[in-house]
Nucleic acid binder design. Sequence first.
DNA 1: ATAGGTTTTGTCAAGCTTTTGTACAT
DNA 2: ATGTACAAAAGCTTGACAAAACCTAT
Lengths: 291, 291, 291
Amino acid sequence: MYAVPMASGDLLRIGELSRRTGVKPDLLRAWERRYGLLEPQRTSGGFRLYPHRDVGRVEAMQGHLARGLSAAEAARLAKQSEPAPVASSITALVDDFRSALDAYDEPAAQALLDRMLASFTLETVLGEGVLPYLHELGERWGRGEASIAQEHFASSVIRGRLLGLARGWGSGSGPLAVLACPPGEEHDLGLLALGVLLRARGWRVAYLGPDTPMETLADAAQRMGTDFVVLSALSEARLEAVEDEIVSLAQNTRVALGGAGATSSLADRTGAELLSGSPVEEAERLAGAPR
Amino acid sequence: MYAVPMASGDLLRIGELSRRTGVKPDLLRAWERRYGLLEPQRTSGGFRLYPHRDVGRVEAMQGHLARGLSAAEAARLAKQSEPAPVASSITALVDDFRSALDAYDEPAAQALLDRMLASFTLETVLGEGVLPYLHELGERWGRGEASIAQEHFASSVIRGRLLGLARGWGSGSGPLAVLACPPGEEHDLGLLALGVLLRARGWRVAYLGPDTPMETLADAAQRMGTDFVVLSALSEARLEAVEDEIVSLAQNTRVALGGAGATSSLADRTGAELLSGSPVEEAERLAGAPR
Amino acid sequence: MYAVPMASGDLLRIGELSRRTGVKPDLLRAWERRYGLLEPQRTSGGFRLYPHRDVGRVEAMQGHLARGLSAAEAARLAKQSEPAPVASSITALVDDFRSALDAYDEPAAQALLDRMLASFTLETVLGEGVLPYLHELGERWGRGEASIAQEHFASSVIRGRLLGLARGWGSGSGPLAVLACPPGEEHDLGLLALGVLLRARGWRVAYLGPDTPMETLADAAQRMGTDFVVLSALSEARLEAVEDEIVSLAQNTRVALGGAGATSSLADRTGAELLSGSPVEEAERLAGAPR
DNA sequence: ATAGGTTTTGTCAAGCTTTTGTACAT
DNA sequence: ATGTACAAAAGCTTGACAAAACCTAT
């Protein structure tokens, strides 16, 4: 039964496991008895000895309970979800991705995107891979270390990929978001990422893209019967230039302002919401996802 | 794919049909009784259930009434003017495609693109479907018949699809073309189509897209060791503004000018080639396609 | 729709489903009783257990209700509608693809191919989706776990798609490859995949397909002035049967042997090259991919 | 357009069972 | 440490009910 010599070291007794997880010993035993959550070794005297990894398992159990799952389900999941597959870290892939784009090597960049998407969630790929890369590229350009050609080349590759992920994003029955940049604003990749992320959470998306006149936006929103309009700009001036139109739009529709150009004072003045976080954060918040 | 022409679809009860058409339930029942305008199914309990298409029929009825016809006549016309059900030629598909985009119906537009691409060659789909549609949309906008929102929405759908077809277009060993629009020029879909068509003929493509500064273009072309640069603009002024740079670029590299803004005199003055035909024609010519 | 197997996944009790959708438990039960909207499993004690996907179904129901449909209609649509096409990883898509083909669900399989191709590169879709599936299907058939009908069904779906991707692959100016299977060999999907991948790298391809007499092949190669002939077979015997013809063909042209039936000793004896890797690897190698 | 009857659908209650955290006796 | 007990929370089924929506007929 005990079998296994158990090479390793750290074994916890039930009191210590309880202290580390905040779960009472009685309950730990109940979980073991009822759901087989843990399978501790025993001392010759019968005391339970838990391997250190069981701390994680108990915490997973708590997490699932907190999300509202039944105890039986929570235990089942906590037992099965041991290994985090841990592909090579995303930062390594992003480094390669940067190199490929810097060298105008489109096929390599595409292959790296494939690998990122295969190993990580969409949120991670965008939030820790693609978007930071774009941000950094913009800064490098500001410092004269990257050419506009490089930025355009990279943008085109990424835009193609995002639009590919977006195909069909107008279908379904979720809430509808209309996405656009104000007149003069051409940087739309962050907004595009937001759209894809909202889609991943079940929303419908209608994408109008860069440099969209406000009259036409209001009209389109009305004709689609939308629930929600997002305006995004890197430059605050671009948003301020249409402040009045935002005010009137916000009277009929829920409006949110995003991108570096969206400030809280502007949001206050116009009656719009402010999306101050990254697309990943804001998509999560908007979709009310507990995650 | 998303498929299916949607045999059935949603069935509306009389209240909802009334809400969508603005015609009171009593009147809808009267039109049914008196003129047989509609022939709804019934629930087991006797409630009327209208197929979605009846919305259109009621709207047609309203239109005829507004033009002064008698109710009997209006109903007769509304009943007979059902749209042709089957679309098989590319023009029919393009008609549907236009309708879908006009209605901001992205999934339907995607499904139609699927059908076009499944039934016709890329050259046909672009040359007789997508590009003429874009051209027409531009003209409708010029006449105030289409909004910019519609143009942006359609552009985004089409751009996503073209970039999808373009994925991996940098790989292989064919001749390399660098594609860009001059500074200030934002209309790049024709150029994108050219790139996809060149790719279909075995070329490699590096795409820099709209609003590309000339210095950076020259630099990128050199670093990639390109054989060929294409500059495209709808506005002649945008090309003339960089005439000198084109001249110097053309001394080291083969350069072609395309789009409505490319004129033979400009080509003559700069030493560049002129792409006077459509992307389909020019791709065929450039790739020396035997047909 | 795709749904199906899905052994695991987290299961929600009615309270949690209610919390996530905002629909009261009573109403969820009523929808189940009256319209069969959901079909939850039960615990041994009789509690309902909903798969996670039911959240989407309930949300679809809510969406349709909000649009004014009757509850009965809303439920009907919510039941039939696809789960929201959420961008997900290639492995998830491949799993669904496998399930769809196993269930003889051709539209679902096509839709999944669409989504894979929209979101990933051709190399990834073939190399990690379609080809492994075919391989596995062959093995299952060998163990008697899959029927011939299943294999035929899957083959025809995939062949149709590959041929669609292949359209126009003879045009352009890249190197020309002639692809064929030797007499008696009917398994050509791997070869077809190789052709599509070579095409994606700019080659021209002439595809003669399964069961091609060697005289025909030699004649075609000569008349097209080809650079390269690929012969592929799963069975080594099929290639050995035409060993002499391969020898003479290889004296005039570059010849490569692929498929499980191609062995290095045969390649040595005939003077042909050996393609020992997967179609993806070999296409990359042959086309001298930059990588 | 009104009147009077029917169907549909969300909500609630009563009475009973299962699940699960905690307590306690051995 | 084990096993049992217990009570709160959450669920189940059946049945009923009323507001909203719809019907026909006048």
